[in-house]
Each structure stands twice: as structure tokens, then as C-alpha cells.
Amino acid sequence: MMNETVMRHQIADYLNTGHNGTPSFALMGVGFNTLDENPNAQTDGKTYIHQKAQTSQIKNYQAQFPFDTDLIASQEAVMALYNIGRNQKTGSEAEMEYVRVELFQPHETLENTFLARKFKVAVAVTGISGVGGESVKVTGTLHGVGDPVYGSFNTTTKAFIINP
């Protein structure tokens, strides 16, 4: 078996842009220059009486997904993020569902289905900017709200399936 490096295009990102409780996952592709994952492990440390160095323990995570997009009006996911910042939405109006799909990990039996995690995120748009002659950029961070849900995602039907 060869060692294969996972490339960025092997991770697909989807944003639920649906309304009235009906999910509609839009691919976060065209327009997105970067969309990173920072688990941000939070540690708790203590130095016991017999130690010189601190003992650390992971106590929780504060997931963050910084993004940088070009403002492309025809791209549903880009426009959903832009509208949160443009309209200065807060609280639950600034929260969305976000799915990160690992295309390099196909489901054992289901076609077009891959391992995925679904996050509830608070969208923090930190910039809508552009200089003369260049495209407008929308930048910010998707902040994790609560625990992720583990499952699979069908890239054809765009349905998230929770692991049993």
C-alpha cells in the first residue's frame, strides 16, 4: 500500500443554506480561497509535587474554521456568509450547519457516501473588503457551537447520515 498524501480537494465543505427547517447543503467551493480547520485543543495543566515540568491534559476543544472568499453573487454558500456580515446578524440568526466531508474515506457500502462531521457554527464575518480593480473579499471564522455530530454524507443527494 502506498503512502498517499491527502490533498485539499479531497475534503469537501458544505453549508446548510436551507430555510424553514428544510436542509439544503451548498458546496463551499467556487469563491473559497481558504477554509481551514483549527481544533483549538484547550488544556488544563498542573505540576505535581514530584515534578519539575507541568502535566497537561486536554479538557475540550473550541473548533474554528477561518475562511477567505471572493464575493461571487451566484455562489449560494458565499452569499449566505456575506449576508450574515452585511446584515450584521447576531445570535441564532448568525448560526448555520456546516458539514466537513472526507472524500478520501469512502463509506464501506454506500455509493457516493463518505465519512463526515456536522457542526453547528456561529458565523463571524470579520471583513468585507476590496481594493480598486480587484474582487471583493469576505473573510471570517465559523466558530463551533457544541459538539460535532459524526456520520456520513452523500455527495449526490447531499444528505447527512448520523452514525448509529
Rank of each mutant, 00 (worst) to 15 (best):
G130P: 11
K158V: 01
I162F: 03
N83S: 09
G31V: 09
Q105L: 11
G31C: 10
K89E: 14
N40E: 15
T126F: 02
L81K: 11
I49H: 08
T69Y: 02
T5V: 08
T47M: 10
T126K: 12
F104H: 15
P106D: 03
N87W: 02
A122F: 12
D70W: 06
L35R: 00
T69H: 03
G45H: 03
L81V: 14
V30I: 14
Y82M: 04
K158Q: 09
Y150M: 03
D68Y: 09
T22F: 13
A116D: 06
N83W: 04
H107D: 14
T109I: 13
E76G: 02
G140H: 04
A122H: 06
E4M: 02
E134T: 14
N154D: 14
E97M: 15
Q88S: 12
D70M: 03
N38Q: 15
I72C: 07
P23K: 05
G133C: 07
A124C: 00
S24D: 13
E93Y: 06
V138P: 09
E76A: 15
V123L: 04
M2G: 13
A94L: 10
A116G: 05
E95N: 10
F153K: 02
D70F: 07
Y150A: 08
T126M: 04
H19V: 15
M7V: 11
Q64H: 00
Q57W: 00
Y82E: 03
R117P: 02
